[in-house]
């Protein structure tokens, strides 16, 4: 068996790229999500200027408010990388602080969105008013649903950290959750520019 085609019993540790399958799989999934959001964003852009009744985007979109919520979401991404760093260092305190930060900032973003939606409905813009309303609510609603899922994920991690179940050896769990969170953030970067600023 000297030159036999046997790799030692450590083939348990083996992957062909040396990379974690979780990360390969999750990045693939993020690539797939790009197409989902691109389809929704394209729909919004294709229907730009096609509404036959108001309210129209330039009458109703609130730039100052959305700038603040955009800032909040960006800062939640910063908290996310710091949380990962805290977990990798094995600091339960840093993990809890920054994961908590992500949860608070993410929830704040959702609060802004809830305010925005109810405000629009008061102003007479619903999903059935015009194509702007349809494409706006579905696009930003899908994004908000992703943020909601992310917040639930973060709360789960926070509880794990609080129970001392998030050791440096588990940092991959936080890294994957972070990839998701940052992806949701970059989608918002695109939406903020294409929907809010370029009217």
């Amino acid at each position: 068996m000297a030159r036999a085609a046997v790799i030692a019993q450590d083939d348990h540790h083996y992957t062909s790229t040396g990379l974690s399958s979780w990360k390969v799989g999750f990045w693939t999934f993020i690539g797939s999500e790009c197409l989902l959001f691109a389809s929704l964003i394209s729909t919004y852009l294709v229907y730009k200027g096609r509404s036959v009744v108001g309210p129209y985007p330039e009458e109703i979109l609130n730039i100052p408010l959305t700038s603040v919520s955009t800032f909040v979401l960006l800062m939640s991404s910063l908290a996310m990388v710091l949380a990962l760093d805290g977990v990798q260092r094995g600091s339960r305190k840093l993990s809890l602080i920054w994961l908590g930060g992500v949860i608070l900032l993410g929830s704040a973003f959702l609060g802004f969105q809830a305010y925005e939606f109810t405000h629009f409905v008061h102003e007479g813009l619903t999903i059935g008013t015009n194509v702007f309303g349809s494409s706006f609510f579905v696009l930003t609603g899908f994004h908000g649903a992703h943020v909601t899922g992310g917040v639930i994920w973060m709360i789960t991690l926070w509880i794990m950290a609080a129970r001392g179940k998030l050791a440096p050896a588990d940092s991959l769990k936080v890294e994957i959750a972070g990839l998701y969170w940052h992806f949701v953030d970059i989608v918002w970067i695109v939406i903020f520019t294409l929907v809010y600023l370029i009217q």
């Binding site: 540790h13 083996y14 992957t15 974690s20 399958s21 440096p168 991959l172």
Partner: peptide, 15 residues
Amino acid sequence: GFGQAQGGASPSGHG
């Protein structure tokens, strides 16, 4: 053996 091992460093140390 499925590349799903948890850990800061991936099994073969590239990560």
